[in-house]
Design a protein around this nucleic acid. Sequence first.
DNA 1: GCTAGCATAGACAGACCTGTCTGGAGAGGT
DNA 2: ACCTCTCCAGACAGGTCTGTCTATGCTAGC
Lengths: 206, 206
Amino acid sequence: MTATTSTAAGAARPAARPSARERLLTAADELFYREGVQSVGIDRIIEHAGVAKASLYNAFGNKEGLVRAYLELRHERNRLRVTRAMTRYRTPRERLLGVFEAQGELFTTPDFNGCAFVAASAEAPHGGSVELAAGEYRHWLRGFLTDLAAEAGAPDPEALARRLHLLYDGATLSARMDRDPTAAATARAAAVTLLDAALPAEPAGS
Amino acid sequence: MTATTSTAAGAARPAARPSARERLLTAADELFYREGVQSVGIDRIIEHAGVAKASLYNAFGNKEGLVRAYLELRHERNRLRVTRAMTRYRTPRERLLGVFEAQGELFTTPDFNGCAFVAASAEAPHGGSVELAAGEYRHWLRGFLTDLAAEAGAPDPEALARRLHLLYDGATLSARMDRDPTAAATARAAAVTLLDAALPAEPAGS
DNA sequence: GCTAGCATAGACAGACCTGTCTGGAGAGGT
DNA sequence: ACCTCTCCAGACAGGTCTGTCTATGCTAGC
């Protein structure tokens, strides 16, 4: 994922330039996320990446392939961000709330612009590969929350996960639409209430 | 707003044809909402409306003007839908939950396709009139929920409204992205928990 | 040193999109 | 009867977008 993951040729030069494919993906990630998939043309991307147009079509086939790679990158990065944040917490209940705290940090990121999958789905035609990628991402997050809810001892982990997922989506949407990073704190507070109602009483000891 | 609001000439013909402006707005509403603002071109709209291109530019100035009118129409229709649903309930608490029930009916509409403002904002450039219209709509809904929460006796109506708004947005988003109309019922169930925690004990009598 | 492979630079075709313009038809009021 | 207003039909210009193609340069390995 980082610059040093390319071939051994990177050792020859101190600051190995990333491959054309990596530069394209980085540029696409920035521009697609900031301005939308439809609004950003191929020319803007190759210019931003400092790459020839043929390299793009050689590496990704067409624009749709680049969009797919962009969404896969977003999926993986979101997955890493959430799972890594979990290491800071101990109990499943803390981890469930930690998801919203990680969200709050994300919202204060200067280039935060909402959920990439929601935005891409709004622009793409129905039933295409974009909606497929969005479905995969949402399915992962749903399963992640369900597993945590089960570990926390929820009688109906699926139901709890669905409710928390609503809060998560709503917070992302509000942070984007209302430019309000505190939406994550609001969601966390609501999640506390939902957890208190859904989870059995917490054990006193560790 | 309806077909009979035009001139008295409507009385001459039994089935008065709506004006070019109205047909344009109807066509734009259908196509913009179903396929997105960017994806639908002017030609598709005038063809669907059976209208000359000059009529569009005469009535709305340019495409952005048509988009603005489309969003204003959506705003007004959403407002009517929610406020009219409120007449079926008596107490403020019932009305707050009724918002989610009205949402559930909306989700089962065959042409439901998520929130028009979220979709339009994802496609439009930042800081434009689309985001302005979205902000106005969201501000209205937030105020509506806040007023209801205050009537229900919430100690902090604004905080409760923010939480319910998160659920509302999350449900709309899930209904669109996951094609799951039951998201409204999930949101309503979560809202019950939030209301139970935030509202003082209900009086026994009416 | 030579060759194979990848990258660059940019022209080009074909399609689409917005917005303007011309030209004419029809209805209502005076 | 005339005039004004709205509307229809479509050509057209100017721009943008995707995707292909040609021609060239640079680097690595044999």
